[in-house]
């Protein structure tokens, strides 16, 4: 009976949303201030992506990266983008970045500030280019696949594409050895599968938010993408693999504690629910 009353009082206390929110905030802030240092294991899926980039891509390859995420998704996707960029630059690959979403421009600008060290010895126009925002969603994807210079004539910073050496080397989908889609939207993965992979067979690599990972898994399963990096966990693993630790690894402890808190919430909620249900059934049978 005392267990019952203890549960009831716990329910009362946790019933206040303010307490729940404050506990959640603390579960995120405390491990950042005092890291627990739990080691990060590398999953086979992340390792497969790493091996693909490392072994299958020729040195000096050309890669197209779609930067399609809003600022909120930075924590999950920016570390992936930084780690992939580092890996590609280390291999001497050249990268063309583009955005099918307007917020991609902010995301790219913040990404470049965060990863300034990667761009230090790289020359804009020769080693990398940022096309900027291209409106038109799926139609723009299809148009870029046929010819980038035929779609837009100027990059994000006002330079003419024909004046940039890298843009003289690549122009259409088949010129790229790999296309990486770093996105917080489900649709954009399907756009690239339909307009770049299906007609031209360009290999795609997905870097998705954790929340949309499950829903685009069928494309990976059907071999329409060479692999997928999912959210902060994959980012942390990739950071370890390329040896540049950043936001991904810094978030892992806080992820652990906050997840455990949410598991505890679910467990307590269910314990209260079942104890009430059992006691009401007992009461009913008397």
């Amino acid at each position: 009976m005392s267990e019952m009353s203890a549960l009831r009082s716990l329910e009362k206390v946790l019933g206040s949303k303010e307490l729940l929110y404050t506990l959640l905030l603390l579960s995120v802030i405390l491990p950042i201030l005092h890291p627990l240092g739990i080691p990060v294991e590398i999953s086979k899926r992340t390792l497969d992506v790493y091996e693909y980039v490392d072994k299958k891509l020729p040195p000096g390859c050309h890669v197209y990266i779609e930067v399609y995420y809003e600022v909120a998704a930075r924590g999950e996707l920016e570390p992936n983008l930084i780690a992939l960029t580092k890996h590609l630059f280390d291999k001497g690959c050249k990268i063309v970045y583009g955005s099918l979403s307007a917020f991609g421009v902010v995301a790219f600008s913040l990404f470049k500030t965060m990863a300034a060290d990667l761009f230090e010895d790289k020359v804009y126009g020769r080693d990398y280019v940022y096309l900027g925002y291209i409106a038109g969603s799926e139609a723009a994807t299809a148009s870029l696949a046929r010819s980038i210079r035929g779609t837009i004539s100027v990059d994000n910073y006002g330079n003419r594409l024909e004046d940039l050496p890298l843009m003289r080397e690549v122009d259409k989908a088949t010129d790229f050895d790999l296309v990486i889609i770093v996105s917080s939207g489900t649709d954009v993965f399907a756009y690239y599968v339909r307009q770049w992979h299906t007609p031209y067979g360009v290999p795609l690599l997905f870097a998705a938010l954790s929340v949309i990972g499950p829903s685009i898994e069928p494309f990976v399963g059907a071999g329409q993408a060479i692999g997928m990096l999912v959210g902060q966990r994959s980012a942390a693993e990739y950071e370890v693999l390329v040896g540049r630790l950043g936001l991904g690894i810094a978030s892992m402890d806080a992820q652990s504690t906050s997840h455990m808190l949410i598991v505890a919430f679910i467990a307590i909620g269910n314990a209260i629910y079942w104890s009430k249900r059992v006691s009401s059934q007992r009461g009913g049978s008397k």
């Binding site: 080691p39 652990s256 504690t257």
Partner: peptide, 9 residues
């Protein structure tokens, strides 16, 4: 959840 977080390991 346990697969995603390091504490699961």
């Amino acid at each position: 959840i346990f697969g995603n977080t390091t504490v699961g390991g």
